[in-house]
Design a protein around this nucleic acid. Structure first.
Lengths: 201, 201
DNA sequence: CCCGACAGGCTATCATTGATAGGTTGGCGG
DNA sequence: CCGCCAACCTATCAATGATAGCCTGTCGGG
């Protein structure tokens, strides 16, 4: 290998690349940012990126992981606030939707694109970090739901997956089809969460 | 322009290309099929494709439209069958999920990918055919829901969008994350539809 | 004080992708 | 018989992610 593996170094160049990439992604959309654009914005040559990341996907995957760590953190915060389990549950759903709308590219990467396309590099290491990060948040949902339902684990899991699907559905559709003739977004989100909550107890 | 516009011809070459492309898409996944592969499978040169389609996207968009026309047709069939509106509604939801799972690439194209990426060529003509086809099916949902709710149009629309989001959520997650630790798929789908139906009356 | 190791970067270069330019051919109507 | 034109073809682009191999500045040990 030409430049040896330096990815494990705490390097600030790597950090700088991630910052620049995040900004470019937010600006032009992840799909329309090339490695050359990132390199130029950083001020290095395009091949130099590969001294810090093995593939282009690894950059977005790394950003995705970090984004979902913030979702997880926010979920924990939400759960720490006082209120009935139902209120907590509702806030959790709201936090999830808001997260998706705040980080559409990361959300797409984690839950809307093909896994191989998104994180093949890391999946080959035996793990899917984006999923892991996302599933941490799913674990929070599972927990609060268990507290509410008082049912066996399998039933809790069944409900958790179904509810996740509902919340994801709205989030992902708003991301993927922003030009659809949606009713007022705020009203739709609230109504959607109402429907889901009403279902529970 | 080199070869003038021949796309409007009823040509069977065009049809043959679509057939071959569909098969390759199903086999390797749409994202991993190049125009050269399609051309070779058809038995023509890669540039010759552009005599029948303006862009590569146009091929997938065309297939997508056709797929969604079958969804629309199936929706109509479902509605024609006897039963209470709730029964019809439930069958409609089931048909929708089944459609997505049967045509994951087309579903992805219509509702999970960025519109520009998917159908930019046709959107530039002022219309998004994939969406149009999908929305025909959405119209069926709106209709049956209006029959059930007996509410003003805006409320019907609000509920229709929320319900669509829920059903889409499960469909798209099963497509995008087939390796997630799902509970039994059949049970999950049925439970999900139950939750949605229970919400309605 | 020099010198090897090496992190970090560079230029040159690939293969693959979608797409365009422009020439060739073969059948069909006037 | 001629010319049109649909349907091809080859050659070629530009952009993309990725690799090979060379150069350089810094830093610790002899």
């Amino acid at each position: 290998m030409s430049g040896s593996d330096k990815r494990q170094r705490g390097g600030e160049r790597r950090e700088q690349i991630l910052e620049v990439a995040l900004q470019l992604f937010a600006q032009h959309g992840m799909a329309h940012v090339s490695t050359r654009q990132i390199a130029q914005a950083v001020g290095i040559s395009q091949p130099s990126l590969y001294a810090h990341f093995r593939t282009a996907h690894e950059i977005s995957a790394e950003l995705c992981i970090r984004a979902f760590e913030t979702l997880y953190r926010r979920s924990i915060e939400v759960m720490a606030q006082p209120g009935t389990p139902l209120e907590q549950f509702r806030r959790l759903g709201r936090a999830y939707v808001d997260f998706g709308l705040d980080h559409p590219d990361m959300y797409r990467l984690a839950f809307m694109l093909e896994p191989p396309e998104a994180v093949s590099a890391l999946v080959q290491q035996g793990k899917d970090p984006a999923m892991e990060a996302g599933e941490s948040a799913f674990g929070v949902l599972r927990t609060v739901l268990a507290r509410m339902l008082d049912a066996d684990d399998e039933t809790v899991e069944l409900n958790a997956q179904s509810i996740w699907a509902s919340v994801h559905g709205l989030t992902s559709l708003l991301i993927a089809r922003p030009h659809f003739a949606w009713v007022d977004r705020e009203r739709l989100i609230e109504h959607h969460l109402n429907r889901i909550c009403a279902q529970i107890d």
